[in-house]
């Protein structure tokens, strides 16, 4: 990666609050914006739990409907 490319990447991460940077002389030091990342990860995890539970229930229902459809097809073919 070029230095210009790297600068672009870092500035996007910085705008998103995912990293913080500090420039001393010619050296720019980056730190992870830990709090923001943790908050977002925690939210994503809660959202995943909701959708997992919801989709597990949908999965069960879909299995049931699939069996019914097969049973129907079987009856009709007789």
């Amino acid at each position: 990666m070029t230095l210009t490319g790297m600068k672009k990447h870092v500035s996007i991460l910085e705008q998103a609050g995912l990293v913080t940077t500090e420039k001393v002389g010619r050296v720019r030091t980056c730190k992870l914006g830990r709090r923001r990342l943790e908050e977002e990860a925690a939210w994503i995890e809660r959202h995943r739990q909701l959708w997992s539970a919801r989709f597990d229930a949908l999965d069960e229902l879909v299995e049931h409907l699939k069996r019914e459809e097969k049973a129907d097809a079987h009856r009709k073919s007789k």
């Binding site: 909701l50 959708w51 539970a53 919801r54 989709f55 229930a57 949908l58 999965d59 069960e60 229902l61 879909v62 299995e63 409907l65 699939k66 459809e69």
Partner: peptide, 26 residues
């Protein structure tokens, strides 16, 4: 999420209110 059933069955579970009620609220 991937479901082990054809699309018409998953769509039916999503679009028929009687079926939708059975899974939307965990």
């Amino acid at each position: 999420r991937k479901f082990n059933a054809p699309a018409h069955i998953v769509f039916e579970a999503w679009s028929n209110p009687e079926l939708f009620k059975q899974w939307w609220v965990p």
